[in-house]
């Protein structure tokens, strides 16, 4: 993923912004209960010239309130022993019209491939990029249908887990040469 961005690195290293401490939260709202989990070690990179944007997250790094939920998530649903990570590789659609060297808040859409549970789907999601004195704060909230990624939820717990999970991505990226 991040290595994909690295292919054009010799052009200019200053155009790459990265982080290793991004946060992804997911939130499931279902009749029986709400379930929330966080991962605080998300790898992400953006190329402010080409608009390439990537992130990768290790599934075992998601922390749930209840240990049993975490166990079921890893062992039965996302099968993290077989598919240890999820990743997104895409591009910021409006990149040609943006100047991410200037402070401001930019509404953007991102198109690319999202891979979860070993299944890759084309997605297009909205988000914001806030540039603040050389730091880029990327934020996006979108929904993921568990069935699209062949994640099987047993009938007995269908009231506990939503069909669509809300995913929130928050990454604070700094220039690679910083």
């Amino acid at each position: 993923m991040i290595l994909t961005l690295g292919f054009s690195l010799n052009i200019s290293i200053a155009q790459k912004y990265t982080t290793k401490t991004g946060t992804i939260r997911f939130f499931s709202v279902a009749p029986a209960e709400n379930i929330e989990a966080f991962n605080h070690q998300v790898n992400s990179a953006i190329d402010i010239v080409t608009g390439d944007f990537v992130f990768r997250v290790l599934m075992k790094g998601f922390r749930f309130e209840k240990a049993l939920m975490q166990e079921h998530f890893n062992e039965n649903y996302v099968e993290s022993h077989k598919f240890p990570n999820a990743k997104f590789i895409g591009t910021i659609d409006e990149m040609k019209e943006l100047d991410l060297t200037k402070n401001g808040i930019y509404e953007v859409s991102v198109s690319g491939n999202l891979t979860i549970h070993g299944i890759t789907k084309k997605v297009k999601e909205k988000g914001t990029l806030e540039v603040k004195y050389g730091i880029i704060l990327a934020h996006s909230v979108f929904f993921v249908k568990v069935a699209d990624y062949e994640i099987k939820i047993p009938k007995t717990v269908m009231k506990n887990i939503a069909e669509s999970i809300e995913v929130t991505v928050d990454v604070s990226l700094t220039a690679l040469n910083n």
Binding site: I2, K20, Q41, R56, V57, L58, K60, G61, P84
Partner: peptide, 14 residues
């Protein structure tokens, strides 16, 4: 720590 895996740049523990 608890190993969550390798993300192509680092070995990650929680």
């Amino acid at each position: 720590g608890y190993v969550t895996g390798y993300n192509e740049t680092d070995v990650i523990l929680e």
